[in-house]
Design a binder for these strands. Structure first.
Lengths: 343, 343
DNA sequence: GTGAAAGCGCTAACAT
DNA sequence: ATGTTAGCGCTTTCAC
């Protein structure tokens, strides 16, 4: 079913049909009606692909994500909300399906799609700088300081809030379970917030109390275990990642510690689901939907040829208390030695 | 940056480059190396659009949704999980952005994309039958009994479970807040389950206890109010939709009824978020992620030219008790008359 | 082993 | 007012 079929059926040339499709001048009213009738009769719709190969404008905005999981799904909800009424359509490309070549997927996808198919893109957590592209791009939560317009959340302040909350409860030895090294830009930001809050309270951060998790659960598990089996173990742990917060709680309980009785845990929340899983967990929340929404809004501005009021948008994080944090125990219980020896 | 640029730089013709790109035979090893080097140097990626206009195979599966909201987002997570390792890539088209012409979006999108760009599609809650397409299609939770392969959940059994649970607690007058008429196919299924459970318990369904909600909150609100201000009001309400369950609780509380003390409410859950909003709500849950996953699996089978073991997959729903339901009060409190008069 | 040319479905100059 | 034609970026015969 192509434009040729329509043309043949209506007894006109393809260019006439094209003109009717695009509301161009120079077609007799009677012809327009006839062609329209045939289009309706056949249920014809012009191919987005052929059209975008020709016109280099598609009215489509692409959101490029590595995978659709709880984190990106939240962003997508916000993006979908923001796209309404803009005249653009939204398509989401999930790279995760094809191949395992994670490095550089952003560049690959952007080259394959930009110019044709999408007028602009929102890239979620790009690992490489996608600056040398003519297509307008907005990055969400980029890994490295990037040249492109960016939306992220206030990781620094969020970490401060977490630690301030724990300090307010009386904790003095607060551990940090940070992200793996050389990961997202937000990792160092959260660590900075942690240090800053401690120092503001006159506490010198103890390097022993900072451990890095990894990409899989077991790395976080090891790190949590190391922290908790320290001779002078922390009475509270700030986990700079929602998954590692839950892991920490599990490890603590396995070690015979009560949460929050013996140990307070506070996590940097990425997704609402994690709050559900662990109902009592106090978290620092990022406004993920809002971030997706703002990214689209910025991109639409860019596509309209307007300048952005600010090229780097940082949204506030907030502390959400659900009851898990307690004051530090008067006499911190030591973890039995055999546990620390095990593995 | 096109194939021409690569050809020029490598001093060969475009067809040679194309052969290298597609691993075709008949190119000298030295030429292959040279072209590969240029491709790497330039960071060239072939245009998905041009390629798909030529080849009618793209290795891309499209998921077509009206909007990305909590319901479809859950399905997408499952779809993204299922796509891994299949060799296909996933793209999601959200129709909601463009125009308000909701009716028939599925047909419009399918025509514009199929044949080119996507090899097959998963349609989420289609309102019309998209049978006459050559492209393989799987429908999730379709509005009408459709000819295409389908994934849905056991709405009938889910409703039965809800009502059986209430009956087990001793309730006898159980109201039904159903979906609007002529909506999703799941509406009547849930109503049937409700009637069936009542009849199995020897109770004749009272037509007065069945009211329909609407697409906006206010319709559900009115319906809930009507039910609760009945002279012989129900002691429990089964809301065939998660939003209307929450609305029902709000209305009940506004009328001075305690939930669950004076009234038990049980809702058909579409999305995990609704459970969070109302932590005490007992719900019937659909396995949304699993539904998305199965839809992709079925489509992949279809694309491989294999037959489906079953063309209609129905996934189980389950009762999740979070504590909101109670036994009926010995002496049901009537709602004050002025409340029923109000509005 | 390599390149010229046709054509995928469509649009936009440019004829007529 | 309508049709003819070139070409978007690519793949694929088919000559050479």
């Amino acid at each position: 079913m192509t434009i040729h079929d329509v043309a043949a059926r209506a007894g006109v040339s393809v260019s006439t049909v094209s003109k009717v499709l695009n509301d161009r001048y120079g077609v007799a009213t009677s012809t327009v009606d006839r062609v329209r009738a045939v289009i309706a009769e056949l249920g014809y719709e012009s191919s987005l692909v052929a059209r975008s190969l020709r016109n280099h404008r598609t009215n489509v905005i692409g959101v490029l994500v590595w995978d659709i999981e709880p984190y990106s799904a939240e962003l997508l909800k916000g993006a979908a909300r923001a796209i309404k009424g803009t005249g653009y359509e939204l398509v989401v490309y999930a790279a995760g399906g094809k191949g395992a070549e994670r490095m550089g997927w952003e560049h690959r996808y952007l080259s394959r799609l930009s110019g044709t198919l999408i007028d602009g893109a929102v890239m979620v957590t790009p690992t490489v700088d996608t600056a040398p592209f003519s297509t307008p791009v907005v990055a969400v939560d980029p890994h490295t300081g990037s040249e492109v317009p960016t939306v992220d959340s206030d990781n620094f302040r969020g970490a401060q809030l977490a630690v301030e909350h724990l300090l307010g409860l009386g904790h003095r030895r607060i551990g940090l379970l940070r992200r793996p090294p050389r990961d997202l830009e937000s990792g160092p930001q959260r660590e900075e917030g942690y240090r800053s809050a401690l120092q503001a309270a006159g506490i010198t951060p103890d390097p022993d109390l900072v451990r890095a998790g990894g990409y899989d659960d077991s790395a976080s598990e090891d790190a949590a275990r190391q922290l908790l089996t320290l001779p002078d173990r922390p009475t509270a742990i700030f986990a700079a990642n929602d998954v590692s917060a839950i892991t920490t709680i599990d490890v603590a309980m396995a070690l015979g510690l009560r949460v929050p009785g013996d140990l307070s845990v506070i996590g940097f929340d990425n997704v609402p689901e994690s709050a559900m899983t662990e109902p009592g967990l106090t978290t620092i929340e990022q406004p993920l939907q809002l971030m997706g929404q703002r990214a689209i809004e910025m991109l639409v501005e860019l596509l309209a040829g307007r300048d952005l009021p600010q090229t780097h948008v940082r949204l506030p994080t907030r502390l959400v208390v659900r009851g898990s944090c307690a004051a530090p125990p008067a006499e911190p219980r030591r973890v039995a030695v055999e546990h620390s020896a095990a593995r």
